[in-house]
């Protein structure tokens, strides 16, 4: 066994949320390494939420789909809620035709909305410049 290639996407921490992403060049070994690293970090840092940006994935086959579903399940068991954000339209169509609905995986249109769902809000307005009335 050779060393797994680095996945290339660092896992950032924002408070109790971990933010990361998948690249298109994800082979099986990298996918496994990614899952392991992420679950280790969730557990070590007590993360409550995980945001995975998949907007760079040009295809999702059943292997990557399984990786995402397992990640979601494992994270849930560790007490973290996973949101997968930014799936491209052709990828969504193909997945549905493959018969994979990513059951149990929460999705968001883009990382911003995913973060919002995880409890993060837009940065506070600078002093004196409140564009909107009541915060949503």
């Amino acid at each position: 066994m050779t060393q797994p290639r680095p996945v290339g996407v660092p896992i950032l921490r924002l408070g109790d949320v971990l933010v990361t992403g998948l690249l298109n060049e994800l082979d099986d070994r990298a996918a496994i390494a990614f899952t392991e690293e992420l679950t280790a970090r969730i557990s070590a840092e007590g993360a409550r939420g995980v945001l995975i940006d998949i907007s760079r994935l040009e295809i999702i086959d059943s292997f990557v789909a399984r990786t995402l579903m397992e990640l979601t399940t494992v994270s849930r068991l560790l007490g973290a809620r996973v949101i997968v954000a930014g799936m491209r339209p052709p990828v969504a169509i193909t997945l549905v035709e493959l018969g994979i609905e990513l059951v149990g995986v929460e999705t968001a249109l883009n990382p911003e909305q995913g973060l919002a769902a995880l409890g993060w809000r837009q940065a506070q307005e600078p002093l004196g410049g409140s564009r909107r009335g009541a915060a949503r």
Binding site: S62, F63, A65, R66, E97, L98, G99, I100
Partner: peptide, 20 residues
């Protein structure tokens, strides 16, 4: 058949590829 697998995957490989 969907869901049938003997390896790492979702068991959608062959049937899924057929649909695509």
């Amino acid at each position: 058949t969907d869901g049938f697998t003997t390896g790492a995957g979702l068991g959608h490989g062959l049937g899924g590829a057929r649909r695509l």
